[in-house]
Design a protein around this nucleic acid. Structure first.
Lengths: 322, 322
DNA sequence: TTGAAAGCGATACCAG
DNA sequence: CTGGTATCGCTTTCAA
């Protein structure tokens, strides 16, 4: 392993000059540059990253924190990794498994300068604890963290939900049920608000009896349909917390001999692989765009630049369930 | 950000001593240790990783190289990450997208000491090119690389295939078709060999007319059934290259009104999520075990220790298709 | 355009 | 048990 010092000696120039060609400094004469470059190539030289990092105080690495790797998370990561690479940053994944302590180690890595910045996909520690690490480097989050120091690229679920509702109403559905996720979460609140606004805007009844909460999985979706069908007053459409739920709703509806979308229209959320496979109408989050914005939010601190965030919006993916 | 030097000054001891308590050296008096520890805690001190890495010449990071992130790859990674963490190593993912050049950057990171070792999940560069990086650090591969310097944790497919065959024969099937993967690959050759050995051992005909090659996807699986059913001489069971293929075979068989497993038995490979969902009998690779062994293969170079590899074997997961 | 030398923040060898 | 100091490999003033 040759070092910068050796290259300097061999070329007859100083370490400073060699370092300059490494860093594309304009203050090197072309001939000098050529000579040094030639020797580096001959010696198969590459600079030691640890030395560079120590000296510069930057690692060019960004950590991504998540409990586990779901399809959605992976999709976000993919987008984030791509734009990071474009700007010369590598990424490293911290899978915490929901362990508070393990998660904190990732934050410690910001302090000990293993990473220059952190992206939070999901976190389990208290927001204030997390925020206390902001002084060591920029932190950005996918989900809203409600803390002034930690920006997020979350979209306002209101818009996506409204989009789905307008679509259903336009299609002639009016008795619309809701399968919400985590009760009381910001997302659920926004969705519920959208439901109430849009329904009243069209002078349609917003039926609370058709509100379901804590609905996350395929299994949950199936149960919702069972419960719905037991009642006499039945909805003609259902908006689901995510595509998993929608898949459950769909399969249970078929099991109960319902004609989808005639008897029951179904709209999912996320536009996941599953919804594509099953042909479920769904709302698409522009995840790649959010991921890119996440990096751009870090850019000021990382690059000293202040790039424009791109405007993002939900879109409706119409398939066979509406 | 406090440094070791500051801790030294504050405590009145030398940097050497502070470093000793950091590294759990026995040559520090208990009181001294306590005092220094107290100051470190008070100052919220953590050592700078870059400095440590530079000084030690080790990063405690291992790179994992893959073209993309499939379910299987993710599963392997999960196991590898877990055992790495247990030994104090972090992991970083290099997704190459099949780009030769991008892949080489990962290998360069071994040279520039960003990572201490490399795990190859899939690679596109020439084996000899890759092997030329072995001098910079240990490299291990999931798949066989046929190069003396790059060990692999691949299993002998012969055993897994034999297991599936014995199972089918025991169940009374005797006209067994094969849907192989990449023709001429080591895996395919082993499977084929297993087929011929086991069939002849039971004095059953090894019918070459039921050999299919280059069968990888659901779609491919469907086509195999179509083609098989066109002939007059039909098999009563089919062994598939993987679970995807098995899923295709299953759905097409049902479409053609075949009673599975009465008319046609189906065995997949990998025990993926899909096979579980669809209830397909399959052969399970002990992936977590392989992943652990992969790390253990790196251990001598990384830890100076030489841990025992665990013996691994395939197992049959019986479900509804046999 | 180039060089000398002082960091960056630890580790580790050699004395005492 | 503790301290002094060279060292890891590169960056970055400050001068020339």
């Amino acid at each position: 392993m040759s070092t910068l010092d050796e290259i300097a000696k061999l070329s007859g120039y100083s370490k400073a000059t060699v370092s300059r060609v490494l860093n594309h400094s304009p203050h090197v004469s072309p001939e000098t540059r050529e000579k040094i470059l030639a020797i580096m190539k001959e010696k198969d030289y590459v600079p030691n990253r640890n030395a560079v990092s120590l000296s510069k105080g930057q690692t060019q690495q960004i950590g991504m924190i998540t409990m586990d790797l779901s399809e959605l998370i992976l999709q976000f990561m993919k987008g984030f990794v791509e734009t990071s690479v474009r700007y010369g940053f590598q990424t490293i994944i911290y899978t915490t498994g929901g362990d508070r302590h393990k998660e904190l180690q990732a934050f410690d890595d910001l302090k000990r300068k293993r990473v220059d910045a952190l992206l939070i996909l999901t976190s389990v520690n208290d927001t204030n604890v997390i925020a206390s690490y902001c002084k060591y480097g920029p932190i950005v989050s996918w989900q809203r963290m409600d803390h002034p120091e930690i920006p997020s690229v979350a979209m306002n679920q209101y818009d996506g939900y409204a989009l789905a509702l307008e679509h259903l109403i336009e299609r002639g559905y009016s008795r619309i049920a809701n399968a919400f996720g985590r009760p009381g979460s910001i997302n659920t609140r926004s969705r519920r608000l959208a439901y109430e606004h849009i329904m009243s805007k069209h002078s349609l009844p917003a039926a609370e009896k058709w509100y379901y909460s804590s609905i996350y999985s395929i299994r949950d979706g199936e149960r919702v349909v069972q419960s719905l069908m037991e009642g006499t007053d039945r909805p003609d459409a259902i908006l689901c917390a995510n595509d998993l739920v929608a898949a459950g709703v769909l399969s249970q509806a078929r099991r109960q001999q319902l004609d989808v979308p005639r008897d029951l229209a179904i709209v999912g959320f996320d536009d996941s692989e599953l919804s594509r496979t099953l042909g479920i109408t769904t709302v698409r989050n522009p995840i790649a765009g959010q991921a890119e914005n996440a990096f751009l939010l870090l850019a000021p601190a990382l690059l000293g630049r202040n790039p424009q965030l791109q405007p993002l919006s939900f879109s409706l993916v119409e398939r066979e369930t509406t």
